[in-house]
């Protein structure tokens, strides 16, 4: 008997096939399959094709359960760039794949932990938009504390 296959569509309209029994590791997909059989294409409007390819690679892993923790860790370690990890975390949130989301977020936290303010802003392309009032509020807060 051939295994049932599902098709996922990325934000940029690329199609990816994956066997249903692997895809249902995603709670989102599992619920869809339960509700309507998910026979048609499943659109993922917030996930780009590059990230979806990674998610599919992850879902297709053939790991023994006891090695799975290490595998997930290694999987995110090898994709150590913060933007890639954040995309992965967002995709894992949308698809509800908890282990992958945890690992990706943990890796980002590890990476930015020792960054200076400027390094964080640079890595995430965040502008310092704090107003003078906020600067003062932060100072006052610590005044209160000290």
């Amino acid at each position: 008997m051939s295994k049932k296959t599902l098709t996922l569509m990325s934000k940029d309209k690329q199609l990816f096939n994956i066997e249903e029994h692997l895809a249902v590791q995603s709670v989102t997909i599992r619920n869809m399959v339960k509700e309507d059989g998910a026979s048609s294409v499943i659109p993922l409007p917030r996930v780009d094709s590059e990230t979806l390819a990674l998610v599919i690679e992850y879902l297709n892993r053939q790991q023994a359960p006891e090695e799975d923790e290490d595998y997930v860790k290694k999987f995110v370690d090898e994709r150590g760039e913060i933007p890639t990890l954040l995309e992965l975390a967002q995709a894992a949130l949308d698809l509800d794949i908890k282990k992958l989301m945890d690992a990706a977020c943990m890796k980002v936290a590890d990476l930015i932990k020792d960054f200076t303010l400027e390094e964080v802003r640079e890595a995430l392309r965040i502008e310092n938009d704090r107003t003078p009032e906020e600067e003062k509020a932060i100072r006052d807060e610590f005044q209160w504390a000290f």
């Binding site: 590059e50 933007p83 954040l86 995309e87 977020c105 392309r125």
Partner: peptide
């Protein structure tokens, strides 16, 4: 197959739009 690289993505993506449950609960809290 992929039309963007991680580098391009970070140019265009606004990470501050990420859901708070990821940025706050899953990353900053850690």
């Amino acid at each position: 197959m992929a039309s963007t690289s991680a580098g391009d993505r970070s140019e265009t993506r606004n990470w501050l739009e990420m859901p708070d449950e990821i940025m706050g609960g899953m990353i900053l809290q850690r």
